[in-house]
Nucleic acid binder design. Sequence first.
DNA 1: TCGGACCCTGCCGCCGGCGTGAAGGTCAAG
DNA 2: CTTGACCTTCACGCCGGCGGCAGGGTCCGA
Lengths: 122, 122
Amino acid sequence: MRIGELAAATGATPRALRHYEQAGLLTAERAPGGYRVYSHGAPARVRNIRCLLGLGLTLEDVRFFLPCLDGDVTQASPSPEGLAVARRRLAVLDARIAAQGAVRGRLAEALEERAGEGCCAG
Amino acid sequence: MRIGELAAATGATPRALRHYEQAGLLTAERAPGGYRVYSHGAPARVRNIRCLLGLGLTLEDVRFFLPCLDGDVTQASPSPEGLAVARRRLAVLDARIAAQGAVRGRLAEALEERAGEGCCAG
DNA sequence: TCGGACCCTGCCGCCGGCGTGAAGGTCAAG
DNA sequence: CTTGACCTTCACGCCGGCGGCAGGGTCCGA
């Protein structure tokens, strides 16, 4: 299948697919004319990539899951490195959420108490 | 006072102060040699800018607070626009936090249930 | 007069996941 | 042969708040 079909099948854009390839997450044969030709298992692979991205991982992170992105993805256990990466990413997410929550709290408080006067306690 | 002094007095870097000026949040006279010369009230102004930034506002947002960044900041009531901006920003923060919380939840869940098998339910 | 601390403007880099052209090649249908 | 859909690579734009460097000027003390 060609890039447009793969895109339609996965919800990604052709541009995104090329991006994944450049990131080393996706490979393709080439037709004589230069067109990318994807294998039978490509759609599943792409869906798995996008799933991991949706979990908050980066393209860099997803590399550690390469071994388990092939074929029947619902099997193959992820590598220990993959788990470690995911856990670290989880910690990063937690930290980020906590920081933003603190900011949000301060802003909300400022909005409340400044019903009276002063735009900032600086 | 010159930029280095203002920086030392406020915790900002000279680079950041020039950035605020470029964003239209800060003004300075010029000494004959071209050096920026800041007024008496500049430190307070900068501290207020940084306070608002710390609340999660952007430089763009802070513009709406310009009228109340002068001199004695603990007075002067913020403009209605300023309030509206702050509230909108609060909503943005809420949305972002909610989205990241959802992501975090999915990742955590994936990590838990995948103690057994399958790296992604795709 | 010279060194060195301080300042100036201007511009690219960063982080991430692509979007959006530009400029051109390929292929099947009419 | 031509149209037009699809593909190729290359390369900049974005968002935000600066960091950091280049290349040069200013000013003060010794």
